[in-house]
Each structure stands twice: as structure tokens, then as C-alpha cells.
Amino acid sequence: MALDQLKAFLVLMQNDLALKEAVLASSTADDVAKIAAGLGYEFAGDELLRFSGQKVGRVTVSKRQPPGEYS
């Protein structure tokens, strides 16, 4: 069920510029999950992280490396 919620949120995000900007400004996956929860979508930050690399519509989920981390 959470995966369906996540996908629905990503579809909404691709059509809402303000929402997209809020998500891109978020520091953590948990922050994104909180934004989604405020709009009625329920998924956890770790579920979003596990979805990294996948695409829904025009949105591709990608994990950002925080500044100071090296690969």
C-alpha cells in the first residue's frame, strides 16, 4: 500500500512546481515523507530511499549524497 501512495505522490509532484521545489529543498527522505503526509500520502522515508533509481512518470527518485560524504 505504501508503494502505491509513494507513486501517487510522485505523480502529483511532477505536475506541481511548488511541491517539487519543496521536495528538492528537503534535507532528508523523512522530510519528504512529512511533506507527503501533510497532503494525505502515507509512506516512510526509508521506503522512498529504497525506491531510489526508479522512475514514475517524469520523476526519477535519486538519493543525494550530503555534503562532506565521499564515495
Rank of each mutant, 00 (worst) to 15 (best):
T28G: 12
V56L: 09
S26P: 12
R50S: 11
D31P: 03
M13F: 00
I35N: 03
M13P: 01
M13D: 00
A8P: 01
S26M: 03
D31G: 03
G38A: 05
S71Q: 04
Q5H: 08
E42T: 15
D31Y: 08
A29I: 02
L48E: 06
L24D: 13
Q14E: 15
D16E: 12
V11I: 14
R58D: 15
Q65T: 11
D46A: 03
D4Y: 04
D31Q: 10
P66A: 08
K20A: 12
M1V: 11
G53C: 09
K7E: 14
D46Y: 10
V59I: 15
L49K: 14
E42L: 13
P66M: 11
E69I: 12
G53R: 01
A8W: 01
L10S: 01
T28Q: 10
L6C: 04
A29F: 02
K7F: 05
V23N: 04
L49G: 00
A22F: 01
D4F: 05
V59M: 13
R64Y: 09
V56I: 15
F9E: 02
D16Q: 07
S26K: 03
L10T: 07
L24M: 09
G68N: 11
S52D: 12
R50Y: 02
Q14D: 15
L19W: 01
Q5G: 03
Q54E: 11
R58A: 14
D46V: 05
L17K: 15
M13G: 00
Y70K: 14
